[in-house]
């Protein structure tokens, strides 16, 4: 039974990835993502001004860029199926809701991680002009994958709520951006609450990992948000008493 579940999850993930790469979605998203990160890396970063061999500015901007890019990746995953009715086909096959959700989650995470691959060109650029510290760079990419997974889970949760992809996108962006921007609004809060809200946001945890320090608390944070989003999605999709 375990084997079966894993097999189903992988088949669903494979199918979703196939759809991403056989339609223009992948290429449009990749281009937009590279354009945004490239803008940060080449134009806004101290790279040219101060000749600093580092990717800090790129990683600094990543949570905000991901907050918009990843809901765009995930918005179709459930909304499209609800809209076209193909969820009826999928859910009358011998698969469970969790298998479908986790399969789609794997696909979105893999897709978002693949999206990071072209950014390795920044690493090469930095290496060409200087000798960067690899700790933060490796840490940054590990953190980025965790971030991608977390936002994918949230995006899927948003997508399961509606059959309209635009609405799914907006809900996804709203949740991801809130988690990202909490960090910037902490100065409004009384001191006692600062630490609590800081730990609630993704930025704090991502920064820790990106600094090259891998702490189990940060990993637990990301895994908890993923689990919560997946469980929420299951509750919504398995509500069979409603018409879709």
């Amino acid at each position: 039974m375990k084997d079966n579940a894993m097999n189903n999850i992988l088949e669903i993930a494979k199918k979703e990835l196939l759809v991403y790469f056989t339609t223009p979605i992948a290429y449009i998203l990749f281009s937009a993502f590279l354009l945004c990160t490239g803008f940060y890396f080449f134009i806004l970063s101290p790279f040219f001004f101060f000749r600093q061999a580092e990717l800090r500015e790129f990683f600094h901007a990543l949570p905000a860029i991901f907050s918009i890019a990843i809901p765009a990746v995930t918005m179709r995953l459930f909304s499209e199926e609800k809209h076209s009715g193909s969820l009826e086909i999928l859910m009358t096959l011998p698969v469970t809701h969790y298998e479908v959700i986790i399969g789609k989650f794997f696909a979105a995470t893999a897709f978002s991680s693949i999206m990071l691959i072209p950014t390795l060109i920044y690493v090469i650029t930095v290496m060409m002009v200087g000798s960067p510290d690899f700790g933060p760079i490796v840490g940054g990419y590990v953190g980025a994958v965790f971030l991608a997974a977390t936002f994918s889970a949230i995006g899927i949760f948003a997508s399961s709520m509606t059959k309209n992809q635009i609405i799914a996108f907006i809900i996804g962006v709203a949740i991801c951006l809130t988690l990202t921007l909490i960090d910037y609004f902490l100065f409004f809060l009384p001191d006692k609450l600062v630490s609590f809200f800081q730990h609630l946001g993704v930025n704090y945890h991502f920064r820790n990992i990106a600094r090259g320090i891998v702490d189990s608390r940060d990993i637990v944070y990301f895994l908890s948000v993923i689990a919560l989003a997946i469980m929420g999605t299951e509750r919504i999709t398995s509500d069979r008493s409603r018409v879709l």
Binding site: V19, T22, T23, S84, G85, S86, E88, I89, T92
Partner: peptide
Amino acid sequence: VGYLPESVPIYGDL
């Protein structure tokens, strides 16, 4: 069970 839904909502991109 084998099921054919009414509007045959099949993934159009595959």
